[in-house]
Design a protein around this nucleic acid. Structure first.
Lengths: 188, 188
DNA sequence: CCTACCGATCGGTAGG
DNA sequence: CCTACCGATCGGTAGG
């Protein structure tokens, strides 16, 4: 397919690349870098934690918007890379999540956010951002900014009519938590 | 691989199946049905909308827990089915989302939830549930109930320390929304 | 359920 | 960058 698109015979590709694997690795690393850099920049913009989270979410969606098919390759194929490349990607993904964790923590510290469970909050935000790859299209009716705000409006304010503090069944449920309760947060 | 696992020669598989595609279709449809049925049952359990949402989220995670590899096949391959099968799956996915929409709407109506933007709220919940397939393991430290509650604790209460009502930058941002503002909600 | 085989495609190479 | 080729694998079939 690539050769066709370039107007070459398939064998001729190998005067430009050394293996198919090399190309896959390049695509995945490029996208992983793009995600990390975009979110890093966004996390350093001025503003309160909520505004910074919105900017990070928007940055994530802009990468999806701009990198098109390569983003799908990233999500579907990264776990098929060789061990060394895979651990490089894993490190980037961790650093990526850490940026979100820092900002949520900053919000809890400065009182913008309530005393939320930070790992779960980060996971919910990242899930919304990551899942977008499954349905987002540049031709869709909403741009990255609108989507980021749609997500964050829900996540910041929550569903509850009373701010989520003192829901009747809340304490009851908490007591039922015994097994595996002190669980560590998942990476993504 | 399948033949090896069964102790057969690969050609012998074709006395049991008619094509590879048939098997793929069967796997995808089985999982799609499992998701729909599990969430349907959960959505019909007694309780207030918040409790029902928790039950639906838990049901989703239990399907991921029990169907293992088949769930990954479902997520990665469903869009490669033929047109007819694909539209069957699309219908199930829509019905699946509609269940969540109904329950969130019920919560807004009965006053449990604030006047949240329902499509965005549903998308955030479904994103968390769906993305779980990327990191969940039955060997992990948290079971489906704990995960569902982890998600829902965040989404119900939100991040904001003041319930998300009257954040200073909120009205400012709303005014900036002009292009594509009356967008329809994405399916997933 | 096996043996034996099919055409197609895959990633890749030699030699020009 | 092409021609011409490699061995391996794929989904699948005939005939027993």
């Amino acid at each position: 397919m690539i050769a066709d698109e370039l107007g070459l015979k398939s064998g001729s590709l190998y005067s430009h690349i050394s293996s198919k694997d090399e190309v896959l690795t390049l695509i995945v690393k490029t996208v992983a870098d793009a995600f990390f850099e975009a979110v890093k920049v966004a996390s350093e913009t001025p503003g309160n934690p909520e505004e910074r989270l919105r900017a990070m979410c928007r940055a994530h969606l802009e990468v999806i918007d701009r990198h098109g098919l390569a983003v799908h390759v990233y999500y579907e194929e990264w776990h098929r890379l060789n061990k060394k490349s895979r651990s490089e990607i894993a490190a980037l993904r961790k650093a990526y999540g850490d940026r979100f964790t820092e900002v949520v923590k900053a919000g809890v510290t400065d009182g913008t956010f309530r005393d939320v469970d930070v790992p779960w909050a980060v996971l919910v935000i990242l899930s919304a951002c990551n899942w977008a790859v499954e349905w987002y299209s540049p031709k869709g009716s909403r741009n990255p900014t609108e989507i980021a705000d749609g997500f964050m409006d829900v996540i910041v304010a929550g569903l509850s009519a009373n701010g989520g503090r003192s829901t009747p069944n809340r304490t009851k449920r908490k007591k039922a938590k015994t097994t595996k309760a002190k669980a560590k947060a998942p990476k993504r």
